[in-house]
Design a protein around this nucleic acid. Structure first.
Lengths: 140, 140
DNA sequence: GTTGGTGCAAAGGATTTGCAACTTG
DNA sequence: CAAGTTGCAAATCCTTTGCACCAAC
């Protein structure tokens, strides 16, 4: 599993420990196609090894700092970040009706940042773009 | 004041009434260069004609539906939208250190949506892009 | 005069914090 | 073993709701 393995690498590289709760949250995120709230994630974790919501909050904080997840403003809020994109650049298509989210990868040039007017003197580190509209299923 | 006048037009055109609280919130937003939470906005409204926070929440809901403001996930959250862009397309540069936000207008083609891989079959209606990094002042 | 908007009080959620106990490397 | 993590309880903060009163058109 690309996403899980790379996330674990990232945690190790930054001196974080690989714990049950962290792996459980990664598993929940890996299979999700819609944004998940901390409580959503709690529900998706097997009952035999429950993880406290407070812990999920803390795990997500770390994940967000490492760029493993990105939080968006839907009722449910965390989406996982693909690792195929240019670091720091993420593009999500969010369906206005069903809230399904898919990250689309911009293989070649992604020049959103190049387009910042030069007089802004803004030193960009990355970007998140949310495209809104209707997904294939909902537009029919 | 471009922003205020156009917002009032928009409210009228959609059958909303022009009330004291709505104008007060517009004024607060018009001069802000950082995202404002409902409570931030409350503080920026002159004490002689106070507006209840609950009302501010409701005003912001309407404004967001009309595209007058956009909410982002900073501690403080609402930024105003410029009217110069292509409808539904907004680009914000947010400083990681001071949280200063500036909307930059992409005058010519803005093809973020064109870049959605065609196999996604996503029918886009608009997009918001948040570019992160350091503003001029903070990068020195 | 109507309809929509506002304020107040209170309910409901979401998120954060402190601290003791437990795991990972 | 030490440092980092977790669970629990509770505090705190954010957001929403219901209802009576008020204001804009």
């Amino acid at each position: 599993m690309q996403f899980i393995d790379q996330s674990i690498e990232l945690l190790k590289d930054n001196g974080y420990k690989i714990t049950g709760p962290r792996v459980a949250v990664l598993n929940a995120l890996a299979t999700a196609h819609i944004p998940l709230s901390p409580y959503d994630i709690e529900e998706r974790i097997p009952e035999n090894i429950p993880v406290n919501v407070v812990t999920i909050y803390r795990v997500l904080d770390v994940f967000e700092q490492l760029g493993i997840v990105h939080r968006i403003l839907t009722k449910h809020g965390y989406v996982r970040c693909d690792f195929e994109e240019k670091p720091g650049c993420h593009h999500f298509a969010i369906c206005d009706r069903c809230e399904q989210v898919s990250e689309f990868v911009q293989k070649k040039e992604c020049d959103t940042e190049m387009r910042i007017p030069s007089q802004c003197h803004f030193q960009s580190a990355g970007h998140f773009a949310e495209v809104t509209g209707l997904c294939e299923a909902c537009s029919r």
